[in-house]
């Protein structure tokens, strides 16, 4: 399955990536190659093989429900571009 120019543009938009028009054919080609590779894997008979959710054969460790993090707002906000009244300020978003 070959990706079109508009596919590449959509994928870039979803990832919020700005791309040059001139680079699109290259990206389309590279991404298409990746998909071809996945298609090759689809040809393998996986009957009876349990789907893998994680490459490590281990299970999730659990944490006790105890507060361990203290308030470090001033530290975290010292690298934020703009803050006010304890809030992070960002360009206006309206639904």
């Amino acid at each position: 399955m070959a990706l079109s120019k508009s596919d590449v543009e959509k994928i870039a938009h979803l990832a919020r990536l700005e791309i040059n028009d001139a680079d699109i054919p290259l990206y389309a080609n590279n991404l298409t190659n990746i998909l071809s590779f996945v298609e090759q894997m689809s040809a393998v008979d996986t009957t009876g093989v349990e789907p893998m959710a994680h490459p490590l054969a281990a299970s999730q460790r659990l944490r006790p429900d105890i507060v361990t993090e203290t308030n470090q707002r001033e530290l975290f906000q010292s690298i934020a571009p703009q803050v006010e009244a304890g809030l992070y300020l960002v360009p206006k978003v309206i639904e």
Partner: peptide, 19 residues
């Protein structure tokens, strides 16, 4: 008492961004 993936408190009504 704490978040699903961190040890920060979930108490309601705390000052903004202190939890």
């Amino acid at each position: 008492r704490t978040k699903i993936f961190s040890g920060a408190a979930t108490a309601y009504g705390a000052a903004p961004n202190t939890q």
